[in-house]
Design a protein around this nucleic acid. Structure first.
Lengths: 339, 339
DNA sequence: CTTGGCACTCAGGAACTTCGAGTGCCAGAT
DNA sequence: ATCTGGCACTCGAAGTTCCTGAGTGCCAAG
């Protein structure tokens, strides 16, 4: 009974603090939310909540502020992700449907997320690892210069130049093209790589060329840069941090440039579109103790090829952010489904 | 005679102010720089410089600070771009030579610029407009689904998917491929576009397909997104702004997301690698009155395909920044030459 | 034209005071 | 058992005042 009210108090504190950015006191709490008790009672509850570590006082004579633990409880038990309004849904759908290619989808998603949440948005490109090879094209730019284009099911295209020591005629080129495609097309990256390796040490005069091309393809497939590709948007929203510039904005700004750090923050791509919320110091980076991350996997079907999400101050609108991230993840997944 | 000393005083003021970020007074000036006169004399000179609008006093009893006009004079007449050290040159060369493709070159350039100058770096992708078509590839992903790949002399690759209402066999495909290549390969974008338009309304059963493909190619060529593609790096350096957060960092952070604004800041791509310095309010954006831009064109030969540069506070190390921008522009140009 | 001297100005910091939101706790009411 | 009104207490934030010293402008002499 009292337990329930305490949770209501915690929820009220979180909501007020997020809205006002100032420590909230017992009196204001009673006034603004319709808890049917007096401020003294709320004070008692607050004392209890403080004992349990859900809230804290910045100064002796100030109101209370939620701790990471408090936010955690709030996120886990006190809130349901509020669905987006019909208008918002339509806006998302319209904007994303207008995308012309993968780059564009990613780009638009970042903008969208940043706008919806007014936070910094981060979108990871779909990983190569689980996608399949749709086609490999080999083009002769010159008799001894090839362009190898690797087209994946996610719409991603990797291309590489290959310099040859020998010259190829059209027939040999066609042969090469069909060889690599026979081996790789339709396969998941990993299997394609295995199959390509198998054909590399073939006999005959085309062998060294084949080997070179295969090597290039393998390199393109395993290229780490691809897995780490990330797009960031909405950095201007950092300007709204106002106070706590040094403690919060600086390290975050640095993190945004370190894509490796960002990837870790977004978390591992698990299967499905599961929302992950990391609050403050729960993460591995001390400098980012006052920032939270709301992220979700996305990808066609129920596979999760990559992640997207937002990064903001621990003091953020969790329900809103979670709704936005979830919605965008879903729409992007749907688009990848179609493609 | 006195004129010369006055300029020396201005130079000293700029240098000191850039170094200390604090208004500089006559006494400190005499001590730190070996001007062979007394502080009273310097004061007289400063009064004159102030009359002419080169420096200003933030407060009545404070030292002097250079005005935009002062920086302008400093940049135009009081400094020569100091060459980079051999070690720096080597570092630039090594880093950039390691690039594997155009994306990589651009990416590395941004990082490099940001590191060298400790400012925010901006690099524009080479424009399509002056590059030539190296090759067009048409690949059948399915009988009614084509991938059109446009390869340009700058190493840029644009690809588009084309859905067909009819099915093509290999022979028709080869025909199509050679038709478009015959028309476009080797031509400058603009000429290629004209040539392609000419072949579009041909007779026969392949005509609608040809028309569709040509249309796609034209779209890819004129795609504005390409011309506006820009990469930003070193935003973390904004954290060093320290003071003047609202007045300087916020608008800049916003500008960095608005690629159109950035492009305007970088300026028009003129021919050659000419260094441009825009100081404070000289630019079109009032909000960016306290930021300067140092930029240069770059591109193979003496063409200037695009621009790169840095954005920083008006109070910045101009000689150093100019040297860095110039050096990077040169090396990138050289790399584009080779490719 | 330069220089030493001198009176003047004023931003920024230190020290102090005030104000009030907010707290903890207790005794009485329910 | 729980809530409530009351009350003394705390202490950060904001306002006030004062002081200091860097820096200035100007002048008369070199």
């Amino acid at each position: 009974m009292q337990e329930e009210r305490r949770l209501a108090v915690l929820r009220a504190i979180v909501e007020d603090y997020v809205a006002t950015e100032e420590p909230v006191g017992s009196k204001a709490l009673v006034e603004r939310h319709g808890l049917g008790v007096s401020s003294a009672t709320v004070r008692n509850d607050m004392a209890a909540l403080e004992d349990e570590g859900y809230i804290a006082q910045p100064h002796t004579s100030a109101g209370r502020v939620p701790t990471d633990k408090g936010y955690r409880l709030f996120v886990d038990r006190l809130t349901t992700v509020k669905p987006m309004s019909a208008a918002e849904k339509r806006a998302i759908a319209t904007l994303l449907d207008g995308a012309v290619d993968l780059d564009d989808v990613v780009q638009r998603s970042v903008r969208l997320l940043a706008q919806l949440t007014r936070q910094v948005a981060v979108v990871q490109y779909p990983t190569l690892s689980r996608s399949t090879v749709r086609h490999i094209e080999v083009v002769a730019l010159a008799p001894n210069r090839l362009l190898v284009v690797l087209i994946l099911s996610t719409g991603r295209v990797e291309q590489r130049l290959v310099e040859l020591t020998v010259e190829l005629d059209d027939e040999q080129l066609a042969e090469l093209r069909s060889t690599v495609n026979r081996a790789a097309t339709g396969e998941v990256i990993a299997d394609a790589a295995t199959a390509l390796r198998a054909i590399a040490p073939s006999e005959g005069e085309g062998s060294t060329v084949t080997a070179t091309v295969v090597e290039t393809l393998l390199e393109a497939m395993s290229d780490h840069r691809s897995d780490e590709r990330i797009v960031v948007g909405g950095a201007a929203n950092l300007a709204r941090y106002g106070d706590s510039f040094d403690s919060a904005v600086r390290p975050l700004l640095e993190a945004l440039e370190e894509h490796v750090v960002l990837l870790k923050l977004l978390g591992e791509a698990t299967s499905g579109e599961i929302l992950t919320v990391r609050i403050g110091a729960e993460g591995p980076y001390q400098e980012l103790a006052s920032t939270s991350v709301v992220a979700s996997g996305y990808g066609p079907g129920d596979e999760s090829l990559a992640r997207l999400g937002i990064v903001g101050p621990t003091r953020m609108d969790y329900p809103g952010s979670m709704a936005a991230v979830r919605a965008v993840a879903r729409y992007v997944s749907r688009i990848l489904d179609d493609a």
